[in-house]
Design a protein around this nucleic acid. Structure first.
Lengths: 332, 332
DNA sequence: TTGTAAGCGTTATCAT
DNA sequence: ATGATAACGCTTACAA
């Protein structure tokens, strides 16, 4: 059995209160008592029980992170930064990979809010879960609309979509496709699509968005992208809604003997450190992941302290130029 | 304020015990009481407090996962699978990205074991932390030696290293370099190096291992790989200890106008789904991530149930052939 | 079938 | 400077 406060108290011949005081360095204590108690703790190898503290304090120092899956580089990097920064602020994190499973997301939301975590950072792609009343709870969303009361952190998706599209148009492409998730999802990522379509129209071009569900396997995605080329033999450029899709398209294009960038231009979205390191040739729109993580934490702490917050925080995107997005030495 | 059991009890005109029984569907209850209590719960929107239950039950249904960083695709995929499988078994996970920080790893180990988690799956790269006595605790290690008492799950690192090296030798390469972590780390991954060196010697070739610390930034790694080419101008092939390094080497080789595979062969290690999807050309040794995850969970559950376990579980590796590792149509 | 009371391991209030 | 006691919210003997 693990020793408890009482065991230490007995061994040191003092009360539980005194041991607790030594443990938390609170109140008046004689040097003698401190040493006596510390010796007893040493001897028993005493470690305080975290759960008991959580119950009394009504605070767990745990933050829940709910995202589609850390197997995706964007969420992997985001979660890694969140964990790191939260750790420095005294929090540990519970993660839930909600992907493909709305029931799982709902379960996480409910479970974790039963005093199991102090707050929640949510970025899952599933549909709104408005049947629950999360008003004034310490939740922030990343790239995800939950409900009116929950602040949302996002990159400048509209500008990003516009920049990507303009980049391709400037290279002289006319038949430019875009991949994105189902339109009924009310995610900020949908603004990339809106920007793409608006920008195309502004240049007298016909937008065409290919729907790719987030929650399908790589194999199914491959099938969709194969078909994309078959159904659009005249395609000259593709703006993919994320870098993984962009790279998959790139691979398939090569199998089909398209030359990139001569025959086909590709621009992605996300610009994780990993992708820019592994494949710097991929032109992409870079989301400022660290800034978004820090912003999310800052806003979450405001909510935890019951301070007012904005509804929306938009972080700037940048363009990573790579040869998949540039035909010649065109300037931007 | 959140309602508690007592509030429900009062509203329903029963005792706390009865409410608890309804909640947990235990003991004898009249249908009438059940309905009365459930109505009261509904009305108050009652949700049981998880922490209070944890304290009483001395069980948190939480498993700690300590790995270098989920930003790395291998650990990202591993953690994603672990989380998913553990969730199905009724557990949630606390993750700690220990990378670069031994103090942080120690802190996680201590904190989490104070009844905060029921068990731990550890795969961090830091040095042994043997000053702690973790005997018979519900911990399992993945690809990591902790101490004699802790079971370890790993892929067949020796065979993997051997296969990678033989593959390169078969292609006719003589000057074959290997990258790996510092040798003083007692990780199973070091067996890849041992296999590489033994295989080289068995073929009368001179092994040369380049040390790359796990915990450095991509920029620093790039510098090391740049220097690798400068110091070994006659290099014909490289066996990198992971796919990210392999891809970085590939990029640098291209900048330096090596042709891959004609001038330079590259074989990596890990073979995550992500890398095989994004860059199928990369030859690599595939670790069976899912099998390792399932094995780790199975062994952890044995420890949780105080059943005996083996000390070591070795999972088979496979070769992913890609054009970075094959000069012509040589068979393997 | 239901209720009373003790206990899970801490912390804090209020005495002394 | 230290101790007795209640409280955090739940579960379970044991009683009734």
């Amino acid at each position: 059995m693990r020793p408890k406060l009482e065991d230490v108290a007995k061994l040191a011949n003092v009360s539980k209160t005194t041991v607790s005081r030594v443990l938390n360095k609170r109140g008046y204590l004689s040097q003698e008592t401190i040493e006596k108690v510390e010796a007893a703790m040493q001897e028993l190898n005493y470690q305080p029980n975290v759960v008991a503290r959580q119950l009394y304090n009504k605070k767990t120092n745990l933050i829940g992170l709910i995202f589609p899956t850390v197997a995706n580089p964007f969420f992997g990097e985001l979660v890694a930064i969140l964990e790191n920064e939260l750790y420095q602020r005294g929090y540990k994190v519970i993660i839930g990979n909600s992907m493909n499973n709305r029931q799982k997301e709902t379960d996480y939301l409910n479970q974790l809010l039963n005093e199991q975590v102090d707050g929640l950072i949510v970025g899952a792609h599933n549909q709104g879960i408005e049947e629950y009343r999360y008003e004034h709870l310490p939740i922030v969303a990343i790239d995800r609309v939950m409900n009116q009361d929950i602040p949302i952190i996002e990159s400048d998706n509209y500008l990003g979509g516009q920049k990507a599209t303009e980049l391709l148009i400037k290279q002289g492409a006319k038949v430019i496709l875009h991949t994105n998730g189902p339109a009924d999802l009310d995610t900020p990522a949908m603004r990339r699509r809106q920007a793409y379509e608006a920008t195309m129209k502004a240049h007298g071009l016909k937008p065409e968005t290919i729907i790719v569900d987030f929650n399908i396997s790589y194999e199914e995605k491959q099938t969709i992208f194969q078909r994309l080329f078959e159904e659009h033999p005249t395609v000259e450029a593709i703006f993919a809604s994320n870098d993984v899709d962009a790279m998959m398209i790139y691979q398939i294009a090569q199998q089909k003997h398209y030359r990139v960038p001569e025959d086909l231009l590709i621009v992605g979205y996300d610009g994780t450190t990993l992708m820019r390191t592994l494949f710097p040739e991929l032109a992409t729109i870079v989301q400022p992941i660290k800034m978004m993580a820090l912003q999310a934490i800052e806003v979450l702490e405001q909510r935890l302290n019951k301070q007012p917050t904005e509804n929306e925080y938009i972080c700037p995107v940048t363009v990573h130029h790579g040869k998949t997005g540039t035909k010649k030495e065109t300037s931007t």
